[in-house]
Design a protein around this nucleic acid. Structure first.
Length: 490
RNA sequence: GAUCGCGUAGCUCAGUCGGCAGAGCAGCCGCCUUUUAAGCGGCAGGUCCUGGGUUCGAGUCCCAGCGCGAUCACCA
């Protein structure tokens, strides 16, 4: 047909939703009345004051009715019907419309009007295909439901399932909302190494890579913590980073090997300033998503209320209320751990057993519909946290849980280099061979603490999980554009 | 890593007791100026995930593998 199937630049395109909003019933009625009159009396002038638009989109529905073709275009803003009448476009454009395939990317221009059935549509006088789609389209009624195909061919999922593109548009607004909030509080966004010679700041297996020119192994970071604290030492009092972490561990509905975190450090703050900040930020985001101050958002079967103050409970209080004895009662803790099937309970650190009992027995009792701060964690499981002055078994740390997931953790940072070195060393003693391979002592970080780090509050939040909760997506893969899958075998 | 479930046309899915491989949509052809997942009529479309085994005969039963999902484990 002598046409360029892959298009060219087009100016003046507006989103489909914007075009739809331009529809004006009065001018459309006036046009129809004058067209009717002209039919009976050819001398009657046809007046057409309907708004004119130029739009583009991917074709998702086609109904060809002889000399009239109805099609529905879809873009990031929504769907809009285009009506192509043989009488209103040139011969070639009509032939193109007749030969249209699902998935073609189309430009149409014309008057915003409506059909006899009242469907708002563009009555095209311009019609062009700017990209042919050669791949067969997904089924139009059921859509693309195969989860594997949705993740592997996200670009198809995005146009076949509008809620997918909506989720990622919302994710973008949430992340930029986090950024605005943090900047509004006077925090400076920074970027610290993703490739680290020592993988520190969390207890997780890292990915290993290799730098050829330097001939050294590097680890993809499991946390930015130790670098952000160096910035406190260097004199930046309020910093945050939004970036990827990588953990070489299992994959499930709430874990992807690469994930996005917000980490925050505030000089002269503590776990409580971080708690206030986190609660304000999440309430802020939920209000934005809900579009009202009454921020109750659905998450599966749950209705999570983000507008009320979050629950707060001390780790030890929760422990006692559920188990009926205190966590300092190491005999009962051992007995309970043994009952839960733990091996070798006599020789293990009692606080590690406390935490295992806690995670198995207490965490499931928290109301998943209520965001909850659990405070005052055992010090043993928190080596980067400052122990409490009057009770060194505990430390100034909280975790935030909601929807049955851990959303984040914060602490009053440990800034005593001697205690920090002792903590790191204890960890290394407990490490098995595999851990020894990647968990080495970060001497430079300890050196930074010796230079002197101000007391500080620090925070880490899993942004993917925040997005899950705020957009009501049950799998982390639904909020990560390209989640990790095994390569397709052959 | 463990257990369970699933894998059939481009897509969404049926397929009975082991007996010729099916439907709808998409595609192709013809007709049609008002359709709303669907105008009307016709045609074509297969590595039944892969490899073995049992059987006269396997999409179906058995074994092994691959992929995806769910649950668990791991994840201070």
């Amino acid at each position: 047909m002598g046409i360029e199937p892959y298009g060219r630049r087009v100016d003046g395109i507006i989103p489909l939703a914007e075009a739809r909003a331009k529809f004006d019933p009065a001018s459309h009625e006036a046009y129809r009345a004058s067209a009717e009159a002209a039919k009976e009396n050819p001398a009657h002038p046809v007046t057409d004051d309907r708004p004119r638009v130029v739009v583009a989109g991917r074709c998702v529905q086609i109904r060809a009715m002889g000399k009239l073709v109805f099609l529905v275009l879809r873009d990031h803003s929504g769907d809009l019907q285009i009506s192509v009448s043989k009488a209103q476009v040139d011969e070639n454009a009509f032939k193109i419309a007749r030969k249209l395939d699902y998935g073609d990317i189309v430009v149409a221009g014309g008057a915003m009007g409506a059909t006899q059935k009242g469907e708002v549509c563009v009555w095209a006088d311009r019609f062009e295909v700017h990209s042919k789609s050669l791949a067969p389209p997904p089924e139009k009624w059921h859509g693309l439901t195969d989860t594997e195909l949705r993740y592997r061919h996200r670009y198809v999922d995005m146009y076949a399932n509008p809620e997918t593109i909506e989720t990622f548009q919302l994710r973008s607004r949430i992340v930029s909302g986090v950024r605005r909030f943090m900047e509004g509080r006077g925090f400076l966004e920074v970027e610290t190494p993703m490739m680290q010679p020592v993988a520190g700041g969390a207890a997780a297996r890292p990915f290993v890579t290799h730098h050829n020119a330097l001939d050294i192994d590097l680890f993809l970071r499991i946390a930015p913590e130790l670098y952000l604290k160096r910035l406190l030492v260097g004199g930046l009092p309020r910093v945050f980073e939004i970036n990827r972490c990588f953990r070489n561990e299992g994959v499930d509905r709430s874990h992807n090997p690469e994930f996005t975190t917000l980490e925050v450090y505030e000089a002269f703050g503590d776990m409580w300033t971080m708690l206030e900040l986190t609660e304000s930020m999440l309430r802020n985001l939920a209000t934005m998503v809900a579009g009202s101050d009454n921020a109750v958002l659905p998450f599966g079967e749950l209705q999570i209320d983000w507008s009320r103050p979050f629950e707060r409970v001390a780790y030890g209080d929760l422990f006692r209320s559920i188990l009926g004895f205190t966590m300092w009662d190491s005999e009962k803790v051992r007995a309970k751990a043994a009952e839960l099937g733990r091996e070798n309970v006599a020789n293990r650190d009692p606080w590690l057993l406390v935490n295992e009992v806690y995670e198995e027995c207490c965490e499931p009792h928290l109301d998943p519909a209520r965001p909850t701060f659990v405070t005052d964690y055992p010090a043993v499981i928190s080596p980067l946290t400052r122990p409490q002055r009057d009770n060194p078994d505990l430390c100034d740390r909280w975790e935030l849980l909601a929807g049955g997931m851990e959303l984040g953790t914060a602490y009053t940072e440990l800034n005593d280099p001697d205690i920090q070195r002792a903590r790191f060393t204890e960890q290394l003693v407990g490490a098995d061979d595999e851990e020894q391979a990647f968990r080495t002592l970060d001497e430079d970080f300890l050196n930074a603490l010796q230079v002197g780090m101000p007391p500080a509050g620090g925070l880490g939040v899993g942004l993917d999980r925040v997005v899950m909760l705020l957009t009501n997506r049950r799998s982390i893969r639904d909020v990560i554009l390209f989640p990790l899958l095994k390569p397709e075998g052959d």
